[in-house]
Design a protein around this nucleic acid. Structure first.
Length: 352
DNA sequence: AAAAAGCACAACCGCTTGCGG
DNA sequence: ACCGCAAGCGGTTGTGCTTTT
């Protein structure tokens, strides 16, 4: 059975001969390919247009690199696959001279097996045991906290870096929201978040969903707006603006050692108000975020709580909450659990 | 040496998307 | 709004080479 586009024609299938390649190359170089369906006839080939197009794109194009993938390319593919999934064409766009087919084959024949052999789920990029625990948790059971993600954050006041776990960030936000004093009418936790936000500006890139498409944005230059609706408080609108009155060197609220002292947060106290991040009621982004929320079980300094617990009962995310910690977490963390060098991802130009 | 298994990669298939009529 | 066509895309299959038994 031939393609639908050429079902009435008698076309050759299977591997291309050097003669056929030669004919196609000569034709494309001379005439271009404004319409692939007309190429076979004009080039004197007994192939369908679709087959010609594929042969050209995947094999004959002069700008193809071919040969083995470099270590850097492999790294890039893993990085991108972690973010994009099986969108081979999108991934290939970031690898000059490589085709989607080539990337796909390389993934299926090499990388996939390598990840599996190292104990990682090639689909989720998580440790296989972590996947299991997540699935487990999705069945309303407690998530094992054997693995966490770690951000390296530059603390400007000390001119040094520090490691901050994803769980710490979440826990701190939750803690701050429950006990947040106000300064000049602005909840302190928002200020803290702003400081965290500014710290991340100094070190890397944030990932910004726009129209449900991940967009790489340097926070510094973005109009990143995060809206956290502190229950019974007026809705905050823009972290950028709220942070503008802050000294950018005040970061330090996310500090594992002093967190409880700073926030006064007691995870066993059930008298706190809930943090609620408002969100738009439609779109897959919301669905994604909700899925993420379903996973959350925080464990900090041996204190454990989750969104269904007494402390934090309802965490969702504003669709304007473009600073998506989960996405940053997802984007930055390599299968080995160590954060990748963000610079490679900085280069990405997402196609929206 | 020969058959079987494994592997890489080229090519195909079918679905989706975009666009013009 | 609908239809048909071309192109794009991702999953799957086919083919030929290499390695193993």
């Amino acid at each position: 059975m031939g393609h639908h586009c050429c079902s009435k024609q008698k076309v050759k299938r299977g591997l291309w001969s050097p003669e056929e390649d030669e004919k196609l190359i000569r034709h494309i170089i001379t005439h271009g390919h404004t319409c692939w369906s007309s190429v076979p006839k004009l080039a004197g080939l007994h192939r369908c247009g679709k087959s010609c197009r594929l042969r050209w794109i995947n094999y004959l194009r002069p700008d193809l690199k071919r040969g083995c993938f470099s270590e850097q390319e492999e790294r890039t593919i893993i990085d991108l696959h972690r973010i994009l999934g099986n969108r081979w064409a999108q991934i290939a766009k970031h690898l000059p001279g490589r085709t989607d087919n080539e990337v796909k084959n390389f993934w299926n024949s090499c990388i996939k097996k390598k990840l599996i052999s190292q104990g990682f789920d090639p689909n989720t990029h998580n440790l296989l045991s972590r996947t299991t625990s997540t699935t487990h948790h999705q069945n309303n059971k407690k998530k094992a906290n054997n693995y966490t993600s770690v951000f390296t954050i530059y603390e400007t006041s000390l001119s040094s870096t520090k490691q901050v776990s994803m769980d710490m960030i979440k826990a701190s936000l939750a803690a701050l929201s429950t006990n947040s004093p106000h300064t000049n009418g602005v909840p302190e936790y928002q200020r803290s978040l702003s400081r965290l936000y500014e710290s991340l500006v100094l070190t890397s890139t944030a990932y910004n969903y726009k129209n449900h498409v991940p967009t790489t944005t340097n926070i510094e230059n973005s109009n990143l707006a995060t809206c956290i609706d502190y229950k019974n408080q007026s809705t905050s609108n823009n972290l950028s603006s709220s942070s503008s009155c802050l000294t950018p060197t005040e970061f330090g609220i996310i500090n594992e050692n002093c967190m409880w002292a700073v926030t006064g947060f007691d995870p066993n106290n059930n008298g706190h108000e809930e943090m609620q991040l408002v969100h738009e009621q439609e779109g897959e982004q919301v669905q994604l975020q909700e899925n993420i929320c379903q996973e959350e079980v925080y464990k900090v300094n041996d204190h454990e709580f989750n969104k269904n617990g007494r402390i934090v009962e309802n965490i969702t995310y504003d669709d304007r909450a473009n600073f998506d910690f989960e996405f940053v977490d997802s984007a930055l963390m390599m299968p080995c659990g160590i954060y990748t060098n963000v610079s490679s991802i900085d280069q990405l130009a997402w196609d929206c």
